[in-house]
Design a protein around this nucleic acid. Structure first.
Lengths: 338, 338
DNA sequence: CATTTGTCTTGAATCGATTCATTCAAGAAC
DNA sequence: GTTCTTGAATGAATCGATTCAAGACAAATG
């Protein structure tokens, strides 16, 4: 029965009657070792239950096999999907992904970046919350590059993968108009969030082009509860003053609206149509399936990780690039009369 | 402008004109260092942008500051909440949590356990998927203890934190009966999942006690789509043969039922009441808020992490314990006529 | 003044795997 | 028979922070 702290590489070497170098080769370059020594070493590893010490490995070799990923909210399905995509790519490169949650808290964000630096991760995928671009720049100089996720890099100092929120906002309102809306509304906020700002701008532009007004209901955040509040507020409006369609800045808000309308006896989409943004799983799983603007979530994570590895592997002359996906409308019952 | 691979501890020592031991003390036992040397060292650290190399630290000290957590599905909000609870406790202990996703795949599960061993994590929180108990036992002998999460340890070899699914199932059916159901049904499967088995058993017992039959609709998995299928199937039954209430083995199924019923013109709860299990956020955010059996998700993660640290810190004589939470009913509109 | 006590400092040894210059063996070429 | 070439194997040096026995120094004690 094995016990105690595990065997080390020298023990394996001793048992297999080879040098430590050979054991290391079996681990890292097995094809450079003759068949019989290789089998002897593998047998010894098996017998001793040897597990290589990653700390020692990366200390000596100077490189870890891990990426750090810092998201705004692990509880948000959008980010877990993005993380999944990134993880798949990391796995292909035999790296592991350390997922951390800044929880929209600048202190935690800094703390996790500290951690990533200490762990000497090979690179960082991040949806920044606080003012971290400078710091990320310094980290790059020290050999830890990063890619911005779900954010367009405003400088050409970084790679980034994002979604064209302006186009998404326009698509949403165009769709509402095309299904007959003449009094559409936008629900969302705060406008300090770039994405809210962009989605609204796209929506406003599209409304202007279509020659319809766009009512604005600003919210302090993007949570479900706000959607319900705004919904209740709309329910109390005169039917002829009430919007006949709503574009919600994200699906959480849209679900809140939907619940409120159901409770207040407003029919969706007959009395009021709704389109959300993100197309989270629950959008399609709502009682009245929710139309939404869909982002290629896993793909975002995959591309981001690919760009990161590109920069990591580039000996020199890596060109930063900005990948911008165009989100797509998924029309469902909340905007389509059956 | 700093650049290149960062400064190391000896550089700091040289710049601050102290020994490496003193720098190490500033980092780890700052109160044992005199004021002026401490400030000199801190200034040097600042100036050089020194970041301690975690690999070297843990190689020498023999201990990492991290836990591994292996869940069945990061996309499931249940697990992210549990992880959040665990992370909070880990943070209190100045440890970081490495979150990994076995995705209900035995191969990935093993691979991540390999990784955790190589990284020499201090302990593992795991919701096992494959046959890993033996391996976990071996890992404990080598100094890496583990706690089972959302699983009752069948032996006293492990600590575990779980939920009393039998009680939960009973509560669900008792509630349905109390709101007037005389033809309740259970939807869920496969019964190879312990939790499905337990929830059904509790439900069946409660039904028997109440003197009502319990119809069974078995599903091959617990996904939304299955719920919708079963819902469509129920919708086609004669009204007098159709269940008047459903207990779904989880919320995803319940949401599927809800959508199907809405599409087929069945009123919830008037024609058919629904209660789910897990009380995920989206249960309360559905158009018709879903009654559900609620598990203290974050608390599960917290307790699990606490038990793990207890075992890690125990020099000797740690007593394994099984924590079992009793889940609670959260009654909402899907079972309560307004 | 000598001695003891306690507080800071010091720096060589150490953790365990990888690296790489060097050695070795065996077959090929001359 | 000698020299080259090639592929395998070797093992001492190394990565960077921590440890801890030993030393330095100042203050307190007798």
């Amino acid at each position: 029965m094995p016990s105690g702290p595990g065997a080390k590489l020298t023990d394996v070497a001793a048992l297999a009657r080879v040098s430590v170098g050979t054991v290391s080769n079996v681990l890292n370059r097995p094809d450079q070792v003759s068949f019989d020594k290789r089998t002897r070493v593998l047998a010894a590893i098996e017998e001793l239950g040897f597990v290589r010490n990653e700390s020692a490995r990366s200390l000596r070799s100077g490189s870890t096999r891990s990426l750090g990923m810092l998201v705004l909210d692990v509880r948000n399905p959008f980010f877990t999907d993005v993380a999944l995509g990134a993880e798949n790519v990391a796995e292909e490169h035999k790296h592991s992904l350390i997922l951390a949650n800044s929880a929209e808290n600048a202190g935690r964000e800094q703390a996790y970046l500290d951690l990533f630096e200490q762990q000497r991760v090979q690179g960082v995928l991040i949806t920044p919350f606080g003012q971290v671009l400078q710091r990320l720049g310094r980290m790059r100089e020290r050999g830890i590059p990063s890619v911005l996720v779900d954010r367009l890099a405003s400088t050409d100092q970084f790679c980034s993968v994002s979604v064209d929120d302006v186009a998404g906002g326009a698509t949403a309102v165009e769709h509402l108009v095309s299904v007959g809306s003449v009094r559409p509304a936008f629900v969302g906020g705060p406008f300090t969030l770039q994405q809210v700002e962009d989605r609204y701008r796209g929506a406003a532009d599209a409304a202007a082009r279509a020659g319809v007004p766009l009512q604005l209901f600003e919210t302090p955040d993007l949570k479900f509860e706000r959607g319900r509040q705004i919904g209740d507020l709309m329910g109390n409006l005169q039917p002829d003053k009430r919007p006949d369609a709503v574009f919600a800045a994200n699906d959480q808000l849209a679900l809140g609206l939907l619940q409120s309308f159901a409770a207040n006896g407003l029919r969706v989409p007959e009395d009021i149509a709704i389109v959300g943004f993100d197309d989270i799983d629950f959008a399609s799983q709502s009682s009245i399936p929710l139309s939404s603007i869909s982002q290629p979530r896993q793909l975002i994570g995959e591309r981001a990780a690919q760009l990161l590895f590109d920069e990591i592997d580039a000996e020199t002359g890596h060109e930063h690039s900005q990948v911008v996906f165009t989100p797509e409308l998924v029309a469902r019952q909340s905007t389509l009369r059956r």
